[in-house]
Amino acid sequence: MPTVNQENVSATRTIAAPAEGVFAVLADPTTHPTIDGTGWVQEPVDRARLAEVGQIFRMDMYHPDAQNGDYQVANEIHVIDPPRTIGWRTGYDPKGDGRLEFGGWSWRYDLVPLGPSTTAVTLTYDWSAVPQSVRDCLHFPPFGPDHLANSLRHLAELARETAA
Rank of each mutant, 00 (worst) to 15 (best):
I80E: 03
Q72H: 14
Y109Q: 12
S117N: 12
P82G: 03
E7S: 11
G96A: 06
G87C: 05
I77E: 06
L148D: 08
R84F: 02
T12E: 06
D93S: 07
E101D: 12
E52C: 06
H78K: 14
A164T: 04
Q55G: 07
K95Q: 14
S117K: 05
R108K: 12
T85S: 11
G39D: 15
V53D: 08
P82N: 14
L152C: 10
P131Q: 02
E43L: 03
A48P: 03
R99G: 05
V45Q: 09
G37C: 12
V130D: 00
P18T: 00
P142V: 10
T118P: 01
D28I: 02
T90V: 13
N68T: 09
G54M: 09
W40C: 10
H139D: 09
T119Q: 06
E157M: 13
R47D: 10
P44Q: 04
W127Q: 00
V79L: 07
G37V: 09
Y71D: 10
F102T: 01
S117P: 06
V53K: 14
A66L: 04
T118W: 14
G69I: 11
T30C: 12
L114K: 03
W88D: 01
D70W: 15
V4L: 12
P83T: 04
V45F: 09
V130T: 00
T31K: 13
G115Q: 04
L123W: 01
D36Q: 13
D146C: 09
T122K: 00
R135L: 03
A129H: 07
Y125E: 04
R49S: 15
Q6D: 12
G69F: 08
P2Y: 01
P33E: 08
V45K: 01
P44G: 05
V130N: 05
G144D: 14
A129I: 00
V41P: 01
Q132D: 12
V130M: 01
T124F: 03
L50M: 12
F57Q: 08
G87S: 11
G98Y: 06
A66Y: 08
D70T: 12
A159W: 06
E43T: 12
I77F: 07
F23G: 02
R89G: 01
D126F: 02
G21S: 15
Y71T: 10
Y71R: 08
A51L: 13
